[in-house]
């Protein structure tokens, strides 16, 4: 089955805490069975998982499956409507829109996954420390988060990219920074309500130090709500990256990227060449939609209470 490794790609982090548990059992088979069980539980989840798999496959295979070179211009074939040769038509330089949309998947998903992974790791770390220790740690991190939240987030991202320079890495960092508060706040509150729980006391009596309690005992219990946040954030991160490119920050033409393609194509809508903007826009929408729908499924996947 191709599904499991692909979701391993789509969900890079939750696999880690499960791994420790996996030592106790036939781990891989158990995970696969759970995966199938969750997927069969709801049509929405199954659909979302299938579409996410498709997106991830396209991103991985990338250049290998393109019918045309996304950068090769061909003035004779400029601005052709969708046809059997060019499924999504061609743009003003005669480049194949379908190839460009496919080629952009790797970049857009890469930015989104990278940004979400960063904000997941650092946000969770900050949240876990403030939730567990409270006191001045909480106060310092809390105010830091408040400062980030005080800006309109998209404007903040624009500012960061504009100041730090127009590179793909900076889009990733900017997107990570504006998403970080959400993780930090969820983890902080979920850990704070559990830090005096019986099982944490018991873990202390078993000789676990504070950091081990946070990482092994508390953090896995926070995963279910985090998964929902994670999948929503993947969608936002994608929109955010496309939005930055749309206004001319970040990725630069001629690199195929959904945001730039929409921006470029928007000039041609009035003259009737709708396909330039529509197809990359619709793909972006579909991708955001897919990752938003994935939330419930991911939550069920990391919640042992679902396994009955």
């Amino acid at each position: 089955m191709r599904v499991d490794p692909t979701t391993g790609e789509a969900v890079p982090l939750p696999a880690a805490p499960q791994g420790t548990q996996g030592r106790w059992k036939d781990a891989a088979g158990e995970r696969l069975r759970l995966f199938v069980y969750v997927a069969r539980g709801s049509t929405t989840t199954m659909l979302a998982m299938a579409m996410a798999t498709l997106f991830v496959l396209v991103a991985i295979l990338g250049p290998a499956i393109l019918p045309f070179d996304p950068l090769a211009s061909n003035p004779q074939a400029a601005l052709q409507p969708p046809s059997a040769d060019h499924w999504f038509g061609t743009d003003n330089l005669g480049r194949d829109v379908f190839s460009r949309v496919l080629a952009a998947t790797r970049l857009d998903l890469g930015i989104a996954f990278g940004a979400v992974a960063l904000s997941f790791v650092f946000g969770s770390l900050i949240g876990a420390l403030s939730g567990y220790f409270g006191g001045w740690v909480d106060a310092v991190f809390g105010r830091l988060i408040d400062v980030i939240m005080a800006f309109p987030l998209f404007v903040l991202a624009m500012g960061i990219v504009a100041a730090a320079g127009n590179t793909v890495e900076n889009i990733v960092y900017a997107t990570a920074i504006i998403n970080l508060p959400f993780y930090a706040r969820i983890v902080r509150s979920e850990i704070a309500i559990r830090r005096e729980a019986g099982f944490v006391q018991a873990a202390r009596l078993s000789g676990n130090g504070d950091l081990r309690i946070i990482a092994v005992h508390l953090f896995p219990n926070v995963l279910p709500p985090l998964m929902v946040q994670l999948s929503l954030n993947l969608g936002w991160a994608m929109l955010n990256a496309a939005g930055l490119s749309f206004i001319g920050l970040g990725v630069r033409p001629p690199t195929p990227e959904w945001g730039i393609m929409v921006a470029e194509g928007s000039n041609f809508i009035i003259s009737g060449e709708w396909w330039l903007a529509l197809f990359p826009g619709a793909t972006l929408m579909l991708a955001v939609f897919t990752f938003n729908l994935l939330g419930d499924g991911l939550r069920d996947l990391v919640d042992p209470r679902q396994r009955t």
Binding site: Q21, A197, F199, A202, A203, S206, P304
Partner: peptide, 17 residues
């Protein structure tokens, strides 16, 4: 109920100490 980690199996809870 509260004193057992909901994500640990009984075996792992007993083995932890």
């Amino acid at each position: 109920t509260a004193s057992l980690n909901p994500r640990f199996t009984a075996r792992r809870s007993i083995a932890d100490p």
